[in-house]
């Protein structure tokens, strides 16, 4: 990921932690990473670049600073755009995905493998070519696509797939459609690598990645229709954005158990139960989380009376001592998440 890509992830008023963005991309699902991901409205990027090494954004960060586009805060941890940086961000013809809200609810990596292999299989089949090297995928994908193929095999499979893909891609920026099509492998078509697409389109490799996620998400969305040929292939890849164990914890809370009871039953620490709940609160919409049960309106009022300024600047350690004694950090963080989500809801 280069400086042009990082520039798009920064803000003029909100200083942003480079390490948090990096951890988000690498899929480190700690509460802290998720919390800042939500604060920066970048949660859609979660786990989209798992292969990144630690420190992989450092060079890009240094470059945006050297180019005068952003500056460090006092601790050299957070970057904020300079006016020049803001101008550069706005003038760049950088790609902005429209489907990003869906991304956390899709297993994009598996979707990509399945779609690419399914397109290859359907393409070869429609040209009556039975003898070809399949794309390199893991065995589970291969098995799944094989089963799908036997299920949907029909003389007009090629026509059906072509029609479905054309409909989905026509809804997108033509460049996105070209990038998604260009990477397909099939009959007498090797397909372009993402690197090659980046070269021919003069877009950064990360932009090409974003474009293909956009395409995949649209194909996923349209495949919800039972008549879409990809329906059975892709339907199982919709997922809740919350991890399995956090989901279990959340369900038990909703049934009325206390955190201590859950911890005892699940044989985990109370702190783990709290982490699960914070993760769920961050990843789910306001209405899907039992705020009233865990953060009574009276508690919210207590916090509201003492905190000031932007949410990002709130510090638990700056709360009045009595309040700190009464409420652990968990409640303070949950309040911040609630306030943040209220803001999002009101279009802020």
């Amino acid at each position: 990921m280069g400086p042009a890509d990082l520039l798009q992830l920064l803000d003029q008023t909100q200083p942003r932690r480079v390490r948090a963005i990096e951890n988000l991309l690498r899929g480190r699902r700690t509460v802290s990473t998720l919390y800042w991901g939500q604060r920066y409205q970048l949660l859609a990027l979660l786990s989209l670049a798992k292969q990144l090494d630690r420190g992989a954004l450092d060079a890009a960060a240094q470059q945006v600073v050297q180019q005068g586009l952003a500056s460090w805060d006092a601790n050299h941890e957070r970057l904020v755009l300079t006016p020049r940086g803001l101008a550069a961000q706005q003038s760049a013809t950088y790609f902005h995905p429209q489907t990003a809200d869906w991304w956390p609810t899709i297993d994009l990596m598996t979707a990509r493998q399945r779609i690419l292999l399914a397109v290859q299989v359907a393409s070869q089949f429609s040209h009556h070519a039975g003898h070809y090297l399949p794309l390199t995928t893991d065995m589970a994908t291969r098995q799944f696509v094989r089963n799908w193929f036997h299920q949907v095999k029909a003389n007009d499979l090629g026509t059906q797939v072509l029609a479905a893909l054309t409909t989905s891609l026509a809804k997108l920026d033509p460049l996105v459609a070209a990038v998604v099509t260009g990477q397909f492998t099939g009959y007498q078509q090797a397909g372009q690598t993402l690197g090659q697409l980046s070269q021919t389109t003069q877009r950064t490799p990360w932009e090409i990645q974003l474009m293909q996620f956009e395409g995949l998400a649209q194909i996923m969305q349209d495949a919800k229709a039972p008549t879409n040929p990809f329906n059975s292939l892709l339907q199982p890849l919709w997922q809740t954005p919350v991890s399995r164990s956090a989901q279990i914890t959340l369900n038990t809370v909703k049934q009325g158990q206390t955190l201590a009871q859950i911890a005892g039953e699940r044989r985990v620490k109370v702190s783990t139960v709290r982490e699960h709940l914070l993760e769920a609160a961050i990843m789910l919409p306001l209405a899907a989380f039992p705020y009233d049960r865990l953060l009574a309106p009276a508690t919210r009022d207590q916090f509201k009376a003492v905190v000031q300024g932007p949410v990002d600047d709130w510090q638990y350690t700056e709360l009045p001592e009595a309040l700190q004694k009464q409420y652990e950090f968990f409640y303070f963080r949950l309040y911040a998440i609630w306030v943040g989500k209220q803001g999002e809801q009101h279009g802020k």
């Binding site: 393409s123 797939v161 072509l162 891609l169 070209a178 099509t181 099939g186 009959y187 078509q189």
Partner: peptide
């Protein structure tokens, strides 16, 4: 090639 032509060629 435009993407529609390229896509159609696959099937």
């Amino acid at each position: 090639m435009d993407w529609q032509t390229q896509l159609a060629r696959l099937f």
